[in-house]
Design a protein around this nucleic acid. Structure first.
Lengths: 115, 115
DNA sequence: TCCTTATAGATAGACAGCCGATATATTAGT
DNA sequence: ACTAATATATCGGCTGTCTATCTATAAGGA
């Protein structure tokens, strides 16, 4: 399922913040999680994610801490802050409004000018 | 209702093509139509629309013709081509897949890890 | 042992989409 | 004469994403 890339614009930060709502995750894990939860639709690239995470950290939406796994690999976990939570809510609301509006435009044309 | 601009990315061409499905329109009219059909959510800017229309014309999705109204103003009408129609269908399908995927991610977090 | 693959994180450069500002010209109202 | 609305258009800039590339460690096979 190959999506038009341009379509995926703007909502990536929303999706990443949403993933962190359920608990702390590290970057590589988010890529897999997002892919799983979207049924393989969103294939977030590392080159997209890491700069995004840094910018979210700068804005105070997430905090980061390192932790070494049993495997020996050092992982950088991200935690959703209170600010991040409210930003998430705003973004969810904005997304819903946007999606509804697109839906109206797409539907409005299909019907027979009824309502 | 102020939308995050970044969210509106990528689907503008879809919406413009959709407007033309019902009949030929000129640019200025599309701005008003889109605003109306989206309940004032999409405030398409002239600086966005006209370059977009030119690119759609280049791609062969629309054709243009001029017509002078009774008011005396010359209007440039756009007509959806056969190619444009099939492009529209593809874009609609892509949008639906995308919106559904976002929905899954947003919903998946809210529920109690049930299904 | 060496090589490859998967994991894990990061940056730089390029590109596309949209917007703000700005410009032009016409019509209509005051 | 001035202003506002209509109508089209272009340019510069910003933002968001991707590709390509880099580093480093761990696991597995030849």
């Amino acid at each position: 399922m190959e999506l038009e890339k341009s379509l995926v614009s703007g909502s990536m930060s929303l999706l990443v913040l949403k993933l962190l709502e359920d608990g702390d995750l590290y970057g590589y894990q988010m890529i897999a999680e997002l892919r799983r939860r979207s049924d393989d639709t969103f294939r977030l690239k590392a080159g997209t994610l890491y700069p995004l995470l840094h910018s979210l950290e700068e804005k105070g939406f997430v905090t980061a801490y390192e932790q070494t796994a049993e495997s020996g690999k050092t992982r950088r976990y991200y935690h959703l802050t209170k600010q991040g939570r409210s930003a998430l809510q705003e973004k969810e609301t904005a997304w819903n409004a946007y999606a509804r509006a697109v839906g109206r435009v797409l539907k409005g044309g299909a019907c027979l000018a009824g309502a």
